Computed example of a mutant assay.
Amino acid sequence: MPTGRTEPRRHVRPEPPADVPPAPRSRPEAPATGAASAPPPPPASARFPDAPPAGTPGTGTGTGDFRGHGTPARPAEPPRRTAVPEETSGETTRRLRPVRDEVLREAPTPRPFVSFGQPETYDDSARPAGRRTRPRALAAAACVVLGLGLIGGAATGSWLTGDSAAEAGSPGAFAAAGGMWHSVPVDRLFPPTVNGEGAGPGGADRTWTRIGVAPDGGCADAFDPLLRKALAPAGCLRLLRATYTDATRSHVTTVGLLFTKADAAAMTSLKNRFRREGLDRRTDLMPRSYAPKNTLAAGFGDAQRASWTVSVLTDAPVVVFAVSGFADGRTVATPQPAADATGSGATTAPAQAGLGHEAQGLADRVERSLRKRVAPATESPS
């Protein structure tokens, strides 16, 4: 019987006809391969930590959600990145951190290749242990070279100055020098022209021209009596003399070579006596000049002698001497030995005129020429 309440009408979906195929589903079923179906993919929040989680029905955060009275929900703001905290000293591993833009823009700079030398070791005196051997070896080599140079220089100097004790032990050279008065032409002993570089006052150059050669002979009239007596122990074998004039033809100089009969020991004794007693500085022991007739030196006599030098050799039986004067024949009241006339500050007439340099310079050049002739004479033929 009716009670006044009406029951709600139920909607019944009609059954499809039997001959109509069922509608396809929105998601196809996994084929039945006998294996377990793949699990569904994880939500976006798990795969992408920065993506916002999917909306939940009824919360108003989904795209298809409606709040209250059908008002569409506003899209949620993307979450901000949180700042990465700085590393602390307690961390044992390095974290992956975002790369800054300015670092990416910088071009990579190649690192230079650096090599390191061997480490130095030090000894007790705080010096590198490996560096003392070379400096000491170099210093020792330098000392050896210096010593050889000094020895060679001393030998050469003694040969040029006549004080050659080292050469005195060579009887062949000594004997060869004693016979040069007849084996060497006069033009080689007394060249027609002699060049004296630096032989003049102040290092000026000199040139001497030969104007006469005396015949070889004895020593009777070649020396003052006292000088002849001083040279007597050595004996007189032969005497050679020549007279030269300078380039200005204002000075004349006689140079001589006295070949003695003495041996090396007697010549050494004679040289020591001249040095000890100063016989080469006494005005009463001057050698005499040679004045060839009809020449510029025709008036060159004893009174015109102004300066002189006498040198006794020890490596050859020879006494080299020279005496100079003015070419105009003027007399000189006070002659001066060449060793004093060539000294600094000398104010005598021979010194001021350069006559000391004339005698010393010409005698030195003739002596050097004599020594050069000795070496070839002592060489044995090959």
Rank of each mutant, 00 (worst) to 15 (best):
M180S: 00
F274H: 05
R74C: 02
A129E: 11
T245F: 01
G203W: 01
A139Q: 08
P185R: 10
I211S: 08
D246N: 11
V186H: 10
R131S: 15
Y122S: 07
R238E: 15
T268P: 00
R100A: 15
P317Y: 04
D101Q: 10
R95H: 12
S311I: 12
F300S: 03
T254P: 01
E7R: 13
G361R: 01
E29K: 10
V186T: 14
R95W: 11
A36C: 04
A137E: 13
P110I: 08
G62F: 01
V103R: 12
L160R: 13
T209I: 07
I211P: 00
P53T: 05
R282T: 06
F66K: 12
A139G: 11
A175M: 05
Q352D: 06
G196E: 04
A375L: 11
Y290K: 01
G278M: 05
P108S: 12
E87C: 10
C236F: 07
G278Y: 05
G117I: 00
T254M: 00
F223R: 08
P215R: 04
A266Y: 06
G70E: 06
P49F: 05
A35D: 13
G58R: 04
L189M: 13
R275P: 00
A264V: 03
S311F: 14
F113I: 14
A298Q: 12
A264C: 09
A265M: 01
P292H: 01
S250W: 00
P72H: 05
L258S: 09
G4T: 02
A176H: 07
E367C: 08
A375D: 12
A232G: 08
P31Y: 05
H69S: 13
E120P: 05
T314V: 08
Y244V: 06
A316S: 11
P40V: 09
T109W: 07
A351K: 01
E367S: 15
A265P: 02
R132I: 08
G152P: 01
A76D: 02
P376A: 03
P53I: 02
R105S: 12
M286I: 15
P337F: 05
G354K: 01
R100Q: 09
A44I: 12
C236K: 05
P52G: 08
F113Y: 14
